[in-house]
Design a protein around this nucleic acid. Structure first.
Lengths: 371, 371
DNA sequence: CTGAAAGCGCTTACAG
DNA sequence: CTGAAAGCGCTTACAG
């Protein structure tokens, strides 16, 4: 037996030496089978876990594997079509808790079902995005989750539809996450949360508190999230019978700095806004800064409501009232569809309003006279 | 030609129908070669991109691939040992910006070098951790990044050393991220930031401001991060010639809630602490709450310094002074080592102190008389 | 530049 | 329960 081991070693060494590209994991199933004195087929059966193998034989094979240091080659197994296919998570950038929660949700169901999560970023580069889809396709992933807001251009819609078709070719599916279905391609499944309704929650709260001139600060049109949230604001204003004044809508990039800038201008313009809803908590936090810098107070001089319910925002002074989106749940649902655990239909999850201290009734001194 | 296409289709269909497990991607290289009228070898050469192929032949093959809808099977390619191996990112949980920044760093260099990032979580479950390493090994990943704080137990060290050995068997490496080298296994590469020195920065600042009784609030021993930060506190106290009073050290879990609880107790015990450093921003934020609830003010009644420099913490009132760890950079360096772009040696990066408004000289009324 | 052949490591009918 | 054989889809010496 020990002699056999030595022969094995020698053979291994020479094989390793003579072969071109280094073998990954020196010993293969054939080696194990030989060492155990069984056929390749039965050796395979004990590792693949299908077919019957006599306990004794099985033990012998396992022992040989142990001795030889055998590690199943999952790549080879995958090639034959068995073994779990990975699911891919493609996002613009791995930034913030939005991304993290969504990814955590997806990973959670993937992991529980024996699948791995492939994570990659595009940086908003279309070239890179294409390349990624191509690579993922070659790797025969089970599904790709395209995560986050995207451009609202017909060109984009066609691009995504193209991805879906390319992926379908290798039996993989494309699932949009955190953005609405693509117009004109209802077959493209999306898992989203109701962004418009979310902003509506914020506006309702403000209206209920008695505000009449409610501003909106957020990104300009062009991306799905920006559009949905802005539209939600408009719709809610109308629903509440409030004035839709273009001057109340301020454009800001999704950063604290630009949020501060935009809210500063809103304040300076002095157009009678007693409250605002921010497209994101980021922007809301910028608003806090601007209000402070103007020597004013929240919510006394300006009520602010955010969106995203990012950590720590509860601990600002005052705590930020905001809209909580079910990011984790979006990830979960998307992964479930990806794995065929749930029907491949559009999903639209609800948001939840989180009341904290940043919204209060308007300061009487600021309310327009006609009240 | 069109007749040939038809034959092809028919053959495909019958093949698909007769075979057991569905083929992933119906057409293979052999089909393309046949369609283009070349050998399998030359068809392979045009896609593998090695070897010479006459432009005309090449074009013909490409055209056939297009017509047939051929997608290279990356799994098969990987099995032959070519093609990039993925790198795996294993973390307790996908929580917070710590994780996100580190992952972003790693993904950035992986992506730039044509590698994919596999992301998985253990939830602190040892069983799951083992299982993951096994799966990753079978998949022949190039490296696994084991990310984050871990237990400071000899048993853990041995476990990790075991992982490293198992991975080495398939030519993969293990890289520890955000935790120090494993004692007794100097060969196990780690990429970390200097946590102890980071806390030292905080203590130095407070000492410089004139504080003499500086508290520490954080997790109890047992995890590397907890230990390193606490040790850093102790060492810095000594270096600054300050009293090391056990009563100044308070245990709190890494949550806002428990931070608030612990700081509340510290305040109630009234042991003359004029400042504290929190193990994490989370805990520091809890401290904010506690101080407020006690009707006190930051930094007047208690200076607080955090650790992690999490987003939004700059916008608390006052802004939280904290220690900024190079999470992104840790991810970058780890991935570089994983890909062989950097030597496989221990890396210890520096932290940076971020001065904001939460630390100020002690309130004279509170300073011990002996000053 | 091109092809026939052997090989990567595994799996599964098919026939005992 | 076990084995010989064909196959998954690709790649690369080796010989033209």
């Amino acid at each position: 037996m020990s002699e056999m081991d030595e022969n094995e070693s020698i053979r291994k060494v020479s094989r390793l030496g003579s072969r071109g590209p280094e073998r990954l994991g020196a010993v293969n199933l054939r080696d194990v089978a030989a060492h155990a004195g069984v056929s390749l087929a039965t050796a395979s059966r004990v590792f693949a876990g299908n077919g019957q193998v006599q306990p004794a034989t099985r033990a012998r094979v396992l022992a040989s594997a142990e001795v030889l240091g055998y590690v199943v080659n999952g790549l080879a197994r995958a090639m034959t079509g068995r073994g779990p296919r990975s699911i891919a998570f493609v996002v613009r950038a791995m930034i913030g808790p939005t991304f993290a929660a969504l990814a955590a949700g997806a990973e959670s169901v993937a992991g529980q079902n024996g699948h791995l999560l492939l994570m990659s970023t595009t940086n908003g580069d279309q070239q890179r995005e294409r390349e990624l889809i191509a690579i993922l396709r070659e790797l025969r992933v089970k599904a790709v989750l395209l995560v986050g807001s995207t451009e609202t251009l017909p060109a984009f819609d066609e691009r995504v539809a193209g991805y879906a078709k390319d992926l379908a070719q290798v039996n993989a599916s494309l699932i949009l996450c955190g953005r609405p279905p693509v117009t004109g391609h209802p077959d493209l499944v999306s898992v989203d949360y109701d962004q418009g309704a979310g902003v509506g929650l914020a506006v309702n709260e403000l209206a209920r508190l008695g505000h009449r001139r409610i501003a909106y600060v957020g990104e300009k049109r062009g991306m799905t999230t920006a559009e949905l949230r802005l539209d939600g604001y408009r719709a809610a204003l109308v629903r509440n019978g409030l004035e839709v004044d273009p001057a109340l809508v301020r454009v800001a990039a999704n950063t604290e700095a630009d949020g501060a800038r935009a809210v500063g201008e809103l304040l300076r313009d002095n157009i009678g806004a007693t409250a605002m809803v921010a497209m994101t908590d980021n922007i809301a936090v910028g608003g806090y800064r601007a209000v402070r810098e103007h020597g004013l107070k929240i919510p006394d001089d300006l009520s602010i409501i955010g969106f995203d319910d990012v950590p720590v925002v509860a601990d600002l002074t005052p705590g930020l009232s905001t809209v909580h989106p079910p990011f984790f749940e979006v990830g979960v649902r998307a992964a479930e569809i990806a794995l065929g655990l749930a029907p491949a239909t559009h999903v639209l999850l609800e948001t939840r309003f989180v009341r904290r201290g940043s919204a209060a009734p308007p300061n009487p001194a600021c309310v327009p006279l006609d009240l």
